[in-house]
């Protein structure tokens, strides 16, 4: 692996609205995230953590500051290139699952591969194995409303990893789940981390953050704490950081 951080944020600011009603969601955030890190971003509601996640996920652009993804300044990418990045490099897991309604688990997981232009036979194979990896190999033909919350979130995880992205971004992934499903989902994130992916989890729950090797706290749009938790998930790469 190169020493270039997979994600490098430099003085990122994000403001909404004009003049008097301006809201500063982010006020100069600078973070480097190395390849293979397991990171939790914590903060109270309104601290700007979702905005940060949207910027990291290339769903939104910062008002100011620079964002390098694998060394490439994201501001220079056009909408097509951004689409490709979201498709191949980043897998999203949302609090509300965000599965396509009335569409089977299999079709949901297959969709990113459709957009990636993968051939049908390969698509089927990869979608199936992604669902099997989250323990839903027997639920391929279930639509979201036939699945429990935990199962829906596991489908969403399968969809996030089916294109084999190096980064998995999760926004309050366990916010809508009971404790048992939470454990299952978090175990999957641990697994993704072990596979060598960069896992970024946004949460306000301490037990979720505890699993991560590094925790960043935000308050009022600024980083107030950046700690590495010891005795955690001895991944070979963690020690190699800064």
């Amino acid at each position: 692996m190169s020493d270039t951080p997979v994600i490098a944020l430099r003085d990122i600011t994000k403001t909404y609205g004009e003049s008097a009603t301006t809201v500063h969601a982010l006020r100069g955030v600078s973070i480097d995230i190395a390849h293979g890190e397991y990171l939790a971003i914590m903060g109270a509601s309104g601290s700007g953590k979702s905005t940060l996640m949207h910027i990291i996920g290339c769903l939104d652009q910062p008002t100011d500051g620079q964002y390098f993804l694998d060394g490439v300044p994201v501001a220079t990418l056009d909408s097509f290139a951004l689409g490709v990045v979201r498709n191949r490099k980043i897998g999203f897991v949302f609090q509300s699952f965000n599965l396509i309604p009335r569409t089977t688990a299999f079709a949901n997981v297959e969709l990113p591969l459709v957009y990636a232009g993968v051939k049908k036979a390969e698509r089927r194979e990869r979608a199936r194995s992604a669902l099997e990896s989250v323990g839903l190999g027997d639920r391929l033909d279930h639509t979201p409303n036939q699945l429990s919350g935990g199962q829906q979130q596991r489908v969403a995880i399968a969809r996030a990893i089916v294109t084999n992205p190096s980064i998995v971004l999760a926004d309050e992934p366990t916010g809508a789940l009971d404790s048992e499903s939470t454990a299952e989902v978090l175990d999957r994130f641990d697994g993704l981390h072990r596979e060598g992916r960069t896992v970024i989890v946004i949460t306000h729950e301490h037990d979720v953050a505890e699993r991560a090797a590094r925790v960043i706290r935000l308050r009022d749009g600024a980083v107030i704490e950046d700690v590495r938790q010891s005795g955690h998930l001895p991944s070979s790469r963690v020690g190699a950081q800064r």
Partner: peptide, 16 residues
């Protein structure tokens, strides 16, 4: 609209 957002988040292009 939300479904369109989801599709874009997982990599759908303008043309898709």
């Amino acid at each position: 609209t939300r479904e369109i957002g989801i599709r874009k988040a997982i990599g759908a292009q303008h043309s898709h």
